[in-house]
Nucleic acid binder design. Structure first.
Lengths: 152, 152
DNA sequence: AGGCCTATATATAAGGT
DNA sequence: TACCTTATATATAGGCC
């Protein structure tokens, strides 16, 4: 967006590309944070570079935003690929007896594993819901807004 | 940021505030999308207004980004509030026998309820993990970057 | 890599229609 | 309400350290 009247070129390459990537990423995060603070709102940005690196910013934190997002009705129209043996997986999860372990006795790593497994089950359920929703003609746009209250 | 040399005032009010909120939100989303396309990356933005309204943008979709994020190790350092009776809730969830219902037989609304309950359990586990992590002196920054590969 | 500079492109606050 | 317009603030590409 700058210093070259024209810059129709898709990209230069290598190091320059990475420098620009970093600058723009920082700019995006900065804007998100300013947006959140200026309006007393919550905002999170997460990005994966082409190489697979993860970057994120959250105000107040990415995880708190995601927890809140996942609790919203709109999160049930997940866009993921269809999954079939949902009931099978859930049955396995219950029968394995993991969930009645006393969570209070688990360490950090173990809790992480449990959370990951529970998340897996939830994703299966959500995917099945998305499947049904898709069959009913609904679709999930890249952009959305969902009412939670009355204003803003 | 404009037309007033100074605008130290926190905010004007009412309709103007909402207009500005909308413009800036759109600007943020636009930037995120441009960022993702320019660098062949994936990016998602989610925001909750003060009133609790949800807005989001994802490229290729918010949900696909979140799924990918949740599979990352860093997602296990959630920042949520501490929760106590984790093991109790999990025990109840299992004993209620809901999870071995055949998911394939459930309708959209029922699936939503199941997903919500599973999510609740996951949040409990994650919160307990956050509690332990906090006790160990770790903290969860608003911003982060996690390696997934070698470049970018 | 990370910081500073500068010219230019974008974003955007107010106000108008 | 939503869409222009315009003046100004930010972001940022490309250099240079």
């Amino acid at each position: 967006m700058v210093r070259r009247r024209i810059e129709i070129k898709p990209i230069e390459d290598k190091a320059k590309r990475h420098t620009t990537f970093t600058k723009r990423r920082q700019g995006l995060m900065k804007k998100a944070k300013a947006f959140a603070t200026d309006f007393e709102a919550e905002a999170a940005v997460i990005t994966f570079s082409k190489a697979g690196n993860l970057f994120g910013l959250g105000h107040p934190s990415v995880d708190s935003l995601l927890d809140r997002y996942l609790a919203e009705p709109s999160s049930q129209l997940a866009t993921e690929t269809a999954i079939n043996g949902a009931e099978k997986r859930i049955g396995e999860g219950v029968e394995s007896g993991r969930w009645d372990l006393a969570v209070g006795d688990l360490g950090l790593e173990e809790l992480g594993e449990v959370a990951a497994e529970v998340e897996k089950i939830k994703r299966t359920v959500v995917a099945r819901a998305a499947e049904i929703a898709a069959a009913e003609g609904k679709n999930s746009p890249g952009e959305f807004s969902g009412a939670g209250s009355t204003i803003e």
